[in-house]
Design a protein around this nucleic acid. Structure first.
Lengths: 225, 225
DNA sequence: CGGCCCCGTCAAGATCGCGTCAAGAGGCGT
DNA sequence: ACGCCTCTTGACGCGATCTTGACGGGGCCG
């Protein structure tokens, strides 16, 4: 079951979309303004967000920006305007797709399916992972290393999740960047180096000789429990 | 999943295109200059290339020429100019299609689909290969010899892949050089000697008397599992 | 038997990618 | 408004990897 967050200030449209989405097997949560939307992304962990620009409380681009600092969830933007300026701005900020009103429900559903294919399931949290040295509980956002609690920042958690989705397998730099920083980041591998080391410092017994988070030069990283 | 290489020096346009393409189910890799583009074609094996003329380092037609000597991937050329000279020149050099800026995203997507229909998919990874002595997993970039993990460098992997594409068959020096070092390397067989031996040292039981990686003097190498 | 070609080997310099650090900006809570 | 935490971004050193040239040996042919 995939979860879709619908953000729109028009209750009519909210209901229309909700019915259509549920009819196609999606679970639906709704938000009427930007702040609620940001909160819902963090709490409900939807698999995809449908975001109407032109909300009462926040600028649409501001909502996008805030979402992006806390999650890499795919976002489909709705807009009544036709100006391509908006379009480019929204896409620059990390939207995955863009639909101008009026639109057909079928079209939107197709784009939701496309976004889900791309992003993979987000909402399902991973199983807790335990080794002799540390324990990671993704649902609770709790990390214990050598018996003591360790604080991980949101970005560190997202990187860790992307790595742990396939434990022991090589994950490419591009995949990691996309999973953590959104679809717009192709090659800026400096982020990865900084945060991979941050994770090593917090999780590894000997950060200089990592046993779990291993780098594959030129390709990506591998996380083995 | 089809892979599209976007070559443009404008990061904005890069991202816009990348997002639009991903929204339609394509995987995207990007390059900001000509040299990176040529390299990416060899390494990432995209199914179609979108190439902006007017790159910082190389003339657009030069990029096309280099691509064409190493790959038959379909290329869609973007250009801000309207002069038909460029158009004819580009098409002569092997571009498959030509779009002048400004263009609609939908139009470009349609041409990408058309190019994909024409070209068909290109690259994927080889199956893991196992013998009594070693095991090679190309997708995971993992090599195990006599039970122990062995690290292979990127170049070693590329050479091994070229050899294993036709196990037990003779692969000519030219083919190997082109597959690993690119289309410009016709006869620098020194590379091959160095890396073939590197591989023997890491994979063979007795590197002095190779049983798997056999050299055919004057012709090339043969890899038998 | 001698010369030649081709391969294996080695080593040194150049280059690349990664780990590391730190300064600065911006958000958030107090 | 202030301070703390986090994220971003650039610079730098180091080790691994790649490149390049040189040298020696073995097989083949004249």
């Amino acid at each position: 079951m995939t979860r879709v967050l619908v953000v729109d200030d028009d209750p009519r449209l909210q209901r229309t979309l909700a019915i259509a989405l549920r009819a196609h097997g999606h679970e639906v949560v709704t938000a009427g303004d930007g702040r609620t939307a940001v909160q819902s992304v963090l709490e409900d962990a939807p698999d995809v967000v449908i975001l109407d620009l032109g909300l009462p409380d926040l600028d649409g681009t501001e909502v996008l920006r805030r979402l992006r600092t806390g999650s890499a969830v795919p976002v489909i933007v709705l807009s009544a305007r036709h100006e391509s300026d908006d379009k480019i701005e929204a896409l620059d900020l990390g939207a995955d797709d863009y639909v101008t009103k009026p639109f057909g429900v079928e079209e939107l559903l197709a784009r939701v399916r496309a976004a889900l294919r791309r992003g993979g399931p987000q909402g399902q949290h991973l199983e807790p992972m335990t080794t002799d040295h540390f324990r990671l509980d993704f649902a609770e956002r709790r990390a214990t290393v050598a018996g003591a609690d360790v604080r991980l920042t949101p970005t560190e958690w997202r990187l860790l999740e992307a790595l742990c989705r396939e434990p022991g397998h090589l994950v490419s730099q591009q995949d990691l960047l996309r999973a953590v920083w959104g679809p717009s980041y192709g090659r800026e591998s400096n982020y990865l180096r900084v945060y991979a080391n941050q994770l090593r410092r917090k999780l590894e017994l000997d950060p200089a000789n990592p046993r779990h988070l291993v780098t594959e030069p030129g390709l990506g990283y591998r996380f083995t429990p």
